[in-house]
Design a protein around this nucleic acid. Structure first.
Lengths: 223, 223
DNA sequence: TAGATTGTTAATCGATTAACAATC
DNA sequence: TAGATTGTTAATCGATTAACAATC
């Protein structure tokens, strides 16, 4: 009872932990620009308003080991986190649906910073096909499946309307794409091995608007 | 021990439940277009791939009461959910930062559909100020605070860069805005009474990329 | 009536927080 | 050494799921 651990831990990490990783990274990038070499969980927790134990567990998940009384080496921690969330070796992506949102994402610098390379955009609109948007070529969507296969694309970003989203996602999967980042307001039916993440703007709006309405109660108290 | 309940329940609802509400609505809107008048939790649960009890609890939260064996009246349920999440009476919004993403959101039809009215966009760029983007006037950001106050704006959408996000959010709060929808990759320091929702693209990317890397393990098994 | 469905109470599960021992 | 900090085990908390009674 001790083998198998040697390389590749790769346990399934809790989603909330994964979502926090980029926050840690942002703090650490800032530290790296200064001459600070060591950082403690306590510090990160304070800056991010989290429980120190939570931070400690998150960091432990990456496999890094800290030094009591000292903390973690900033550079080492950055590398550990980036590796843990796969940002040191990220797959290429296709984006389908070059409307307002799609165009914006094609030009979003944050992606490039995090190593996400959107290789091309796809659309049905003849006006758009053949042009470039933020330096990315726009191709006809009929070419998506075949090209995805040939280029070994791993990630598909869906920014088409709700009606066409399922069909587009199907084409992506047919082309061997293994992860779908869905910005369309529909639930996609996908084979279980496909990773689907929904960017759920309507959900966030619901949270905001409910909370706002809740506040109103007190104001409305009398009358 | 029985008074006070009469009107306005307005208990604090769990965030996950709130996020699911728009999903239910989408199903219900579709049903409403057909001649289906009644719907069961069982049906909604099946379509959305959720546990039926979960759906039942979510719906109960809105205050609606169903009929055993029959279910819920579609129209009534739509109204109950929309009211519950405040979509029948949503506040106006300002958007700051008319870059790629900001412009896209100004033209996003999904918002209008859900009753979110973005009144105007704000930017520092002299080229943009005075123009219209997707039919919304773009004003100089110096006018934001004052106008927000005079127009009783409730929601501020932050689509500026990470560096200016805090300053912009501060101006919004100074103008009486009570909810901030933050698309910038920074943590905003806000007074506790302000509702802050972060649209965390980097977090989602981390989830996707970690999961993708995880899949690779099996492929890499030997070699 | 029988059976599908609602509504509610109890059990489970997972993530966060608290407590504490180990260490440089 | 003393004290800050790591790392781990136990307790808490909240959301989901299971079990079951109530009802038309």
């Amino acid at each position: 009872m001790q083998a198998q651990t040697s390389e590749r831990p790769m346990k399934s990490a809790p989603t909330p932990s994964l979502r926090r990783m980029p926050m840690y990274l942002r703090c650490l990038y800032a530290l790296r620009k200064t001459d600070v070499e060591w950082v403690s969980c306590t510090y990160l927790a304070e800056v991010l308003q989290k429980d120190p134990t939570l931070v400690r567990k998150d960091l432990a998940m990456t496999g890094i080991v800290g030094k009591p009384k000292v903390g973690f080496h900033v550079t080492g921690l950055v590398a550990a986190i980036e590796h843990f969330i796969g940002w040191d070796n990220l797959e290429d992506a296709f984006l389908a649906g070059v409307g307002n949102l799609g165009s914006a994402l094609l030009g979003y610098e944050g992606f490039a910073q995090h190593g996400l390379n959107i290789v091309a955009g796809f659309d049905v609109d003849a006006e758009k096909v053949g042009t470039e948007v933020h330096g990315k070529r726009i191709l006809h969507i009929d070419k998506l499946t075949d090209l995805a296969q040939r280029m070994h694309i791993g990630i598909g970003i869906v920014t088409v309307g709700a009606r066409t989203a399922q069909a587009v996602a199907d084409r992506m999967v047919a082309g061997g794409i293994r992860a779908i980042w869905n910005f369309a307001p529909v639930r996609l039916e996908m084979p279980p091995e496909i990773i689907v993440e929904n960017e759920d703007l309507a959900g966030t709006l619901a949270v905001i608007s409910r909370r706002l309405a809740g506040l109103n109660v007190e104001t409305d108290e009398r009358e």
